[in-house]
């Protein structure tokens, strides 16, 4: 019956091709049965993976959200990579990182931050263009809830940990930091309130980081972790275009320089299922005695 030489119809030939492709696809996928889900299922709703925060965890840019990185659902794994640049009056910032989402349940992330002190470096005696660098290893676990589905009153809730290692130990200690590495703990709740097209996130972070950790952890004004808040409010203009704002409070541990809360206003556009570009106006206040650090952020994220 499946003999193409016996005058098979176009339909049968097509079926054969489909069957052939299915077999080939199965072989390519490591001979998994046809019913099995692909490993990178990619079925998450667009933008519900969030955008990479400056520490590499998925979130809203400044804040870490309860979302899990990658385009996977609860039956697959997802991958995500990002690069972010921030231009401030006296500093430059570049960060990049990768994240893995496992079954929309667990997120593992890594990010590298490079903070260029430009002329300030010379003024601080570090040398012009001195860069503070930091590695951040993050993990997040979604406990309950869903950003989009389920009860409108139950947000998606996750807990997270971020281990941060400044690569400039001697210098950050000289500035007054107690330690060159530290660990932040956080809990976040995120919900897309569909009836209002609004996304709300609130995150509590227990941290002792100075300038996100780039200037080490703890200092003369305080060495223990304190509870800080990250809030995001966003409005969905289309399923691919979101505008919003964020606030993030921060510890103020160092004696030599004041640290302010950070704010941003952002627009994120998923111009493709797998690519989101974010532009933001960021205000991080005073950094290492140089006040009024407001500037532009641009970030590109690829997610599968």
């Amino acid at each position: 019956m499946l003999n193409p030489s016996s005058g098979a119809s176009a339909r049968t030939r097509r079926r054969l091709a489909v069957a052939g492709a299915a077999v080939a696809a199965a072989l390519l996928a490591g001979a998994t049965p046809a019913q099995a889900d692909p490993l990178l299922d990619g079925d998450k709703l667009i933008l519900t993976n969030g955008i990479a925060s400056i520490e590499g965890a998925s979130g809203g840019g400044l804040a870490s959200w309860s979302t899990i990185a990658g385009m996977e659902t609860d039956r697959g794994i997802g991958l995500s990579a990002h690069v972010t640049g921030i231009a401030l009056p006296d500093y430059g910032w570049e960060s990049h990182g990768v994240a893995v989402g496992i079954r929309d349940r667990v997120e593992l992330s890594y990010a590298r931050q490079n903070f260029d002190t430009r002329k300030v470096g010379a003024a601080l005696g570090l040398g012009e263009g001195f860069r503070f660098n930091q590695d951040i290893f993050g993990a997040k676990l979604r406990l309950i809830g869903d950003t989009v589905y389920g009860s409108p009153w139950l947000p998606q809730i996750s807990i997270g940990v971020q281990h941060k290692r400044s690569l400039d130990g001697a210098i950050v200690r000289a500035v007054g930091a107690k330690s060159a590495s530290g660990t932040d703990f956080s809990a976040s709740a995120t919900k897309l309130i569909l009836s209002k097209s609004v996304l709300v996130n609130a995150t509590a972070r227990w941290t002792s980081a100075n300038q996100f950790g780039l200037l080490g952890f703890g200092g003369p004004k305080g060495s223990a972790r304190t509870l800080q808040f990250e809030g995001s409010l966003a409005y969905m203009l289309t399923s691919r275009l979101v505008v919003g704002g964020e606030v993030r409070t921060r510890p103020d541990n160092l004696g030599i320089a004041r640290e302010d809360d950070a704010h941003d206003l952002f627009v994120a556009w998923a111009f493709d299922r797998h690519a989101t570009v974010t532009a933001a106006y960021v205000d991080v206040g005073s950094v290492a005695t140089f006040d009024g650090q407001r500037g532009a952020l641009v970030s590109l994220q690829l997610a599968f």
Partner: peptide
């Protein structure tokens, strides 16, 4: 599956968009 549900939601969004239903009303 959750992925099937997401696919269906995307199709509904597309059908509503093609009929020019305002996005806020789609979400409601």
């Amino acid at each position: 599956t959750r992925g099937n549900m997401n696919a269906l939601v995307e199709n509904l969004q597309r059908a509503m968009r093609e009929s020019k239903v305002p996005f806020a009303a789609q979400n409601r």
